[in-house]
Structure formats: structure tokens, C-alpha cells
Amino acid sequence: MEIGRILEKLCTCDGVSGCEDSVAECAKGFLREFGAVSVDKLGSVSMHREGSGKHFLIDAHMDQIGLIVTGITDDGFLKVSRCGGTDLRTLTAAQVTVWGKKPVYGIICSKPPHLMSDEESDKAAKCEDIAIDIGFSKEKAQELVSVGDRVSFAAGFERLEGDIVCSKSIDNRAGMAAAIRCLEILSHRESTAEITVNFSVQEETGCTGGGVAAFDKRADFALVTDVSFAKQPGVSENDSSPMGSGAMIAFGPVLDTQMSKELERLARYNKIGYTIEVCPGRTGTNADNILSGAGGVKTAVISMPIKNMHTPVEVVKLSDIEAVAQLMAEFILSKEVE
């Protein structure tokens, strides 16, 4: 399937951390084509393909940032807290879906500019001052929504210029798309590799799912694919890679340097676009928990640059996802019989 179609299907699903059911169902549909699918105790979805060669684990988290309902006011508005690193600045007047007994449409309340002081107008509201307008009385709201329900941005998938697309939750549906595309590439090549793909839960709330999902897989190599920062106004070149520059290969103390170097060599050899990303400590991805689990796993992180991370308008270039998929496939093909 064209990578844009894969990404669109994944982005159209929702799965705020701890409530990943909808995206999990979609993920299973994609993975069944390539091997046996299972779900672990926390809810992460895995695909396993037997092979006589080395065992490779590809991890991509499937949860997304959002909000969680903490209360219902007397007027029927929903009070919320953040679920993951949601950017408060993006909430004002945003349209959302509340995952109650059925999906409920809502708008994040905002004061009109005519009624605001100057100090208020250039600050985002504090989380405790945020509420969602769902247009129901308290009684009706209570029938539909419960404390603990998740809230996601209602922001569709759209194509910008060329192969650049915009959506909510490209973090980390782009990583999932890269993993699925990698399996597709490998299915057309001769490969003896044993492969596990984990689409893990609850990364955004503390990298909970990835380590657990990896634990009993005992892979020889783990490839963690996630999103990282693209160059955009206000983001320094040092912190980012340009859109369209391909896969971002991470180097850093906790990662396996030999793997990172091999990925760089393979990218150069196969003419796959890449840049180097330096993670001076922990990576902030599932790699942190995967690499130290089960007695230690050699782990690399391969990312695609995205703009506007943790907003309803995350932007990615499809060719960068393709580069990540190809590079992971080349790595597996090159190391499977070593």
C-alpha cells in the first residue's frame, strides 16, 4: 500500500494513552498480513514472523497525546487534565472528540478577545482553567461521559504541497507506518530473519508499554522508530533535521553505537537519505526501557523529522517515512545471518 494511505488509515484512528483500542484494531489489520498477531497484558499489539536468522524487534508506539476527563461542571462542561505532553497553547477553541459511551463532539472553551485583558490574551489558559463545551446539560453529559474518558483532537488528515501531509497523531503513526512499510519491503525480498513488530501502548505517559512488550521477545537487535524534530521557524538547526532529509539515525551513550554506525553505512551504501541525531542522555523514546530490559538488548533509534510536534497539525514528509522503512529493512537484511 502507498505509504500515504497507510499513514492516513492509522491517523484516522484514535488512541490516547491507555485507551488505544481503536488504533490497535487498525494495527492488527495491517499486521495479520505478515505473521501471527497477539496482544500483551498492557494492550500492546505484536506481530511475530518465524525465521532461522537473527531476531529483530521493531518498536513503534501507537498511543497519542490527548486529555482525560476529570469532572463535569453543573453547567455540563467537562473539566480535563493532560494525558501525555499535550501543549496547552494548542487547546484554545480546538475541536475535540470525547471518547464517552459514544464519541461526543466538543470545543475547548475560550474567552472572546473583547472580554480579555492584555495579559490574558498572550498566554494559554492553565490546565485547571480549561473546559470542554459538549452542548449538554449536566444530567445528559453524565449519561454520555464519565470521569476518566479520554479526549483526542478532532483534526483530520490532509495533504499539503507535494508529499507533505498534516494530521493529529503523526506522532507516532508515522513510526507505525514505517514499520508496516518495512514488513512490506521485506516480504518482497528473500529474508531468513525472525521478526517481531511491537506497536506499544502508553509511550506518551512514560514509555510504559514498550519495555514490557519487548521483555519476553529476547530480540538480538531492537529498532525503535519514532518521530523527532524537523527544521522549522524558531527551531535551531542543532535541534532538528530538514524535512525531506530522510531517516534520522540517533547516536548517544545509551544506544548501541555499532548499530548506529551500521545504519549510517547502510544508508550511504543504499543511497537512502539520512541525518545524524545526537541524544546526549536518555532518548525520550521507548528505546530507554527496551535496551535495558531482559538483561539488555542492542538498540537503535531511527526517526523521521516532523514539524509542530504534539499539536493537531503535525506535519511529515512521506519520503522521510519511506527512508526509515527502507533503512530498517536494509539493516535486517544485512545483519540477519551475521
Partner: peptide, 19 residues
């Protein structure tokens, strides 16, 4: 088009609510 946002991760702690 989309109105760009410098990611919250790259925003200084005391500026995280500044529009």
C-alpha cells in the same frame, strides 16, 4: 496551510504558555 508551533519540548520552561 497550518500555523506552525515550535514544539513544547523545545520551549523554555517559563515560556510554555506564551502565545
Amino acid at each position: 496551510g497550518v500555523v506552525c508551533v515550535v514544539p513544547i519540548h523545545l520551549t523554555d520552561k517559563d515560556k510554555k504558555r506564551d502565545i
